[in-house]
Amino acid sequence: MYEVIFNTHDVVLLMTAYQCILFALLLLTIKREHYIRNVFLAFFLLQQAAIPLDILISFGAEFRHIAIEWSPNLFYVFGFGYWLEGPLLLWYTRSLIYKDYHLKLTDLVYLLPFILYVGYQLLFYYSLDVSDKKTIQEQYDLALAPQVMNYVTLFREIFRVVLGVICLIEIKRYTQHIRTNFSDIDKIDLTWLKILVIGFLVIRFWAVLVAAMIILSIGFGISTDFETMGLLGNYTTFLLVSVLIFFGLGHSSVFEGLEQKQTSEPEPIKDEQEPELQKDKIKPELIDQVSRYMETEKPYLTPALTLEKLAGQLRIQPRLLSNIINRHFDCNFFEFINSYRVEEAKRMLADSHYADKTMLDIMLDVGFNSKATFNTLFKKKAGMTPSEYRKTVQPVTT
């Protein structure tokens, strides 16, 4: 008769690991652009593959016994994945949102829990004889294990949640940054990163709940169904990994990254204007300089206009220009530039000389690259869509 080694729950764990390994190899061997961020993502996926393998070896209904017979050294060897998930996800996030990102010495502080884990296992488990390890695994019972280990597990899950929250903070800061420095943000797609971070953050919150339930059940005698909760977490992880891989394979922008190509602009002259950043008042002549330049030179007609480029054209510091826009015009750079674009569009729509131009032509002429953004901002400022506005300002031809 055939012996059943893997049940349905085990198969889900194996499929999760298989998908992660396959996608990681794809990133490392096929895609060469933005290689450093692909390396971070690949190692994150390999770490994700290690976690279900650790669960399978430690808690698999039948496979645990087979693993003991094969080699007790299999236990805990994949446990490193738990401690590397947070740092790798954070580094991958930063490699996407920061230009030329590379690890610094301070980043290695996130590896301290991992180093402690490896040191502990080497000292208190792998230094033992094979027979002793086998005995430990054969006699293992979660209810009889040292309670301190359950608290270590809780700390581990909280650690992963904390680094996930840091990832969200980084994404929020970057979102604010692009609205402050870019006038065209439609090509900057954060969808992949948000799904990745939020998805795993939700799962890690779930893992914290499971760890807390284990402590309540074993340490305080409060009945909880932590086993079912843990299984649901495994299935959810499998679904999340499947969605991420499907999304990644179907959207090339996932691999193109978020870096914006920069064109050369005149270097802003450093002068005595910079101290104005610390003052409540901004020199009126600077405000006039910005307003006059926007009206006469119309730099907003350039779709890829950035704060740095406009500051270079004005020959003032980018931080000073941002300060002027935020304080005097009471908006961010994205809103500032696109308000001029909307006004230019309104002028063209009201001018009979442009009556033969399509809405798409006008949209592109005034600097917009996205019809959705054009319609949304136009309606927000004019109270109606561009088509409705054209009908109200141009006489009906008979």
Rank of each mutant, 00 (worst) to 15 (best):
N150V: 06
S131L: 12
L88W: 06
L244N: 06
S217W: 01
L123D: 12
L168M: 12
L56C: 05
G81D: 11
Y2R: 11
L74D: 03
I136K: 05
H65V: 04
F182H: 14
K283R: 14
V12G: 00
L209S: 13
D100V: 11
F75T: 10
E343L: 10
Q394H: 04
N323V: 01
E62F: 04
G199E: 05
D107G: 04
E85I: 09
S352W: 03
V39F: 13
R156C: 11
L314Y: 03
R390M: 04
I115S: 11
Y389I: 05
F255D: 00
T358E: 12
P266I: 07
S242F: 14
L209M: 14
G199Y: 08
T296H: 11
A61K: 14
H9D: 14
D189L: 02
D225P: 02
L25T: 09
A24T: 03
N332E: 12
T191F: 07
N369F: 07
K381G: 03
P386R: 09
T180D: 15
Q176F: 13
T263L: 12
F23T: 01
T398Y: 13
V243G: 04
G81T: 11
L258V: 08
K381S: 15
D132R: 09
L88P: 01
F80W: 15
M229T: 10
A311W: 01
R390K: 14
I324G: 02
S95V: 00
D365F: 09
A61D: 10
F378P: 01
R315Y: 04
I269C: 02
Y140V: 04
F378D: 05
V118I: 15
S95L: 02
F200L: 01
I158A: 10
E265R: 15
R173S: 12
G199L: 09
L231V: 13
E69R: 02
L108S: 10
W206A: 06
N181S: 14
R173M: 10
A17K: 06
L96E: 14
V165A: 11
I215A: 01
E272R: 15
I222V: 15
C167A: 05
L154S: 01
S95P: 03
I171G: 08
E285W: 12
R315K: 15
W91P: 01
E265W: 06
G312Q: 03
Y293V: 07
S71A: 05
Q273V: 13
G221L: 03
N375V: 10
G164F: 01
F182I: 04
Y293N: 09
S95D: 02
N326E: 15
L103F: 07
K298S: 08
G221T: 00
L360F: 09
K283H: 10
A24C: 09
I324R: 07
S322C: 08
G219H: 06
L116F: 13
F159R: 01
I97C: 07
T376V: 06
F247D: 04
D54F: 05
R156P: 00
G199H: 07
D132T: 14
A145G: 02
K133G: 08
R64G: 00
P275A: 06
T398V: 13
